[in-house]
Amino acid sequence: MGVIIALVVSFGALIIGFMGEGGHVGALISWTPAMIVFGGTIGSSMLAFPMSDLKQIGRIMKSGLLYEPGDLNQLVAYFYELSVKSKKEGLLSLEAEVSNNPDADPFLKKGIQSLVDGESYESISDSLGNEIDRIEERHKIGAAIFNSAGGTAPTMGIVGTVLGLVHVLEGLAEADMSTLGKSIASAFLATLYGLASANLIFLPMGNRLKINNQKELLEKELILEGVLLLQKGLSPKTVQEKLMGFLNGDEGEQSGSTASVAREAVGAA
């Protein structure tokens, strides 16, 4: 929803401002400059990146637009509960956490399943660590694709404008003065499309993927650390304190109160 609002605000401001100067929306629509700008940008991306990466663009966009970071405070409290349970009933008791919660984070489920299967500390660290590396690489590729498009689109816009002006100047001697202004305006639409798409879509999307990358990596690293602490069999209090190192000050205070509630609930059980 936030992405839709942002696009409506940004493009809406441009259109309303243009209309406020006396323009009309129809003057901003032309398929030829759009073909030059977006066709050229797509072609440049196809040359710059392997097709295997470009085929993932749908998944990458979904990640950038729909990704919602998990609550790190709840994760800390969750691992505290798991630690209490494993201390009382053993690591095998955590198998229910995998089978009874189909909506759980697949990465978290994989980590807990590794504990239940009795995998070694090194095996779990390597397996989950490699998956974190793959997630990071995916985000980097996605950000690079959109940042590349953000750099190419304005240039293609200038190319489109130059092509349009070449056509206008070529027939200037025989031009109908009543249509000359319209032809020049149409030529400059390519620059508009290039600048607007770069600064309102491609570059913001690249930055969004970078931010999501940082948030998702932090979440996955917390999960990895939590799983490894459970594998070591440390006390619930130690698990909580070590995982709180992933939180900033405000989150750390909130996590402390959340974990206290979790301790009371577990004790009551």
Rank of each mutant, 00 (worst) to 15 (best):
A77F: 06
F107P: 00
T152M: 05
E122R: 10
A144N: 14
T155I: 13
T161Y: 13
S86G: 04
A96R: 12
I112V: 12
M156I: 09
A153N: 01
S99R: 09
H139G: 07
R138G: 09
L128H: 01
D133C: 03
V84A: 10
I201L: 11
T155F: 08
A144H: 12
I124C: 00
G157R: 02
D105H: 00
L82H: 02
S123M: 11
L94G: 04
F107K: 01
M177I: 04
N130V: 04
V84Y: 08
K88C: 09
S186G: 10
L200W: 03
A143Q: 08
P154M: 02
D103F: 02
A175V: 06
A185V: 12
E174I: 13
P154V: 02
S183G: 15
V98G: 04
T155E: 11
S186W: 05
F188Q: 09
V84K: 07
L189H: 07
D126M: 08
E81W: 03
G164D: 07
L108H: 05
G151M: 01
G111E: 00
A153H: 02
I124Q: 00
G171N: 14
S148L: 13
K182N: 14
E97A: 09
V116K: 08
L200M: 08
L172E: 04
Y80D: 01
